[in-house]
Simulated assay, not measured.
Amino acid sequence: MSIVTSKADKIDRLAELSGNVGTSAGASLWRETFNRLRTSKMAIIGAAIVVVFVIVSIVGPLLAPYDPTAQTWRGDVLPNQGKFVGPREGNWFGLDHLGRDMFSRMLEGTRQTLLVGVVATLIGLVVGFAIGALSGAAATLGGRRGQQLDTSIMRVTDILLALPSLLLAVSVAAVLGQSLTTVMIAVGVVQIPVFARLLRGSMLSQGGAEYVLAAKSLGVRRRRIVVTQILPNSLSPVIVQTTLSLATAIIEAAALSYLGLGNPDPSIPEWGAMLTQAQRFFSNEPLMAVYPAVGIIVVALGFTLLGEALREALDPKLRG
């Protein structure tokens, strides 16, 4: 019960902190947020990391000096005979145990890692948004049926939140089978209850705002108030969570690939899978594992810094 309360309280706290954001004029709010982000060192560093990561994922594979899946180098088949070769001229990161250029595989792996993180986050966002909007609307509109529906949805959400995220992702991946699509779905399922509860909490926070009371006094229908006023003004914490979830999705996707639940084709470079392949060489050749590990850490740090900076910029208690 304490696990459920802890997770749920953190999510509700984020919704509460951003709950009054929508009461200001939209244009001025986002202009002020952008101005605060421009002066935030944390936001600048996070944005720089994210931009570099995105650019590398787009153009990196085109700039790769060698075929990342080819087990040859300059015409020689397996020149390292099953051993890792460290950095040298022509191979900045060296060759892996199958003679594949590590630098080329890191560039191609950037695209695979970004694809998994973005798709998984979109799955969690879309499904969680729909569930959270339904629950929040039911709770806001009131009525016996609405309250029952909201309670039922939130109890299921609390059950999912009670499960450790990695354990839930592993369970889903084990049921669906080994594939890259499975990793995306499994990580996306973990994100669904977070987005659902966050949006629902934000909508409840907005339900008591002055503009909602004013609309009710003017005779505007409750459903119209929910759709046109409460829901749009409840999106700020969801936007923040989306940025933070990208970092979590990348780490969890790498963990699933490391556990052997990712792409069954080992020739396709993906940072989590590359960690798995480097495991048996770690004691003698740690660099083979250091490259993908550092990539995962830096990218996750970039999204986390950007998300935290965005949260602080949107926090009404920190805004002047």
Rank of each mutant, 00 (worst) to 15 (best):
T5L: 15
A8E: 15
D9M: 15
I11A: 05
L14E: 03
L14V: 03
A15S: 07
E16D: 09
S18I: 05
S18K: 04
S28Q: 08
L29K: 01
R31Y: 07
N35R: 08
L37T: 09
S40T: 08
M42A: 12
I44Q: 11
I45G: 04
I45C: 03
G46H: 00
V50Y: 00
V51T: 08
I55V: 09
S57N: 00
I58L: 10
V59G: 08
P61R: 12
P61T: 10
L63G: 09
Y66N: 06
T69Y: 06
Q71C: 12
T72M: 09
G75E: 13
P79C: 09
Q81M: 09
F84D: 13
V85S: 11
V85H: 07
G86I: 03
L95C: 10
H97A: 15
H97Q: 14
L98D: 15
L98A: 12
R100S: 10
R100K: 10
M102E: 13
F103Y: 12
Q112V: 12
T113C: 03
L114E: 01
V116W: 06
V116K: 05
G117A: 09
L125K: 03
I131Y: 06
G132V: 10
A133N: 13
A139E: 14
A139V: 08
R144E: 02
R144N: 06
Q148M: 12
T157F: 00
L160M: 06
A162W: 00
L166I: 07
L166T: 06
L167C: 07
L167K: 12
A173G: 08
M184T: 04
I185M: 04
Q191V: 01
V194C: 04
L199G: 08
L204Q: 05
S205M: 14
G208A: 10
E210Q: 08
E210T: 09
E210C: 03
L213C: 05
L213F: 03
K216S: 02
V220M: 12
V220A: 13
R221P: 02
R223T: 02
V226L: 00
Q229Y: 01
L231H: 01
V240Q: 03
Q241I: 04
T243N: 02
L244G: 06
L256W: 03
L256S: 04
Y258M: 03
P264T: 12
I268M: 14
P269R: 01
P269T: 02
G272F: 00
A273S: 14
L275M: 13
Q279E: 14
N284L: 10
V298R: 01
G302L: 01
F303S: 08
L305I: 11
L305P: 15
G307A: 12
E308N: 13
L310H: 06
D315C: 11
L318S: 11
L318K: 12
G320V: 12
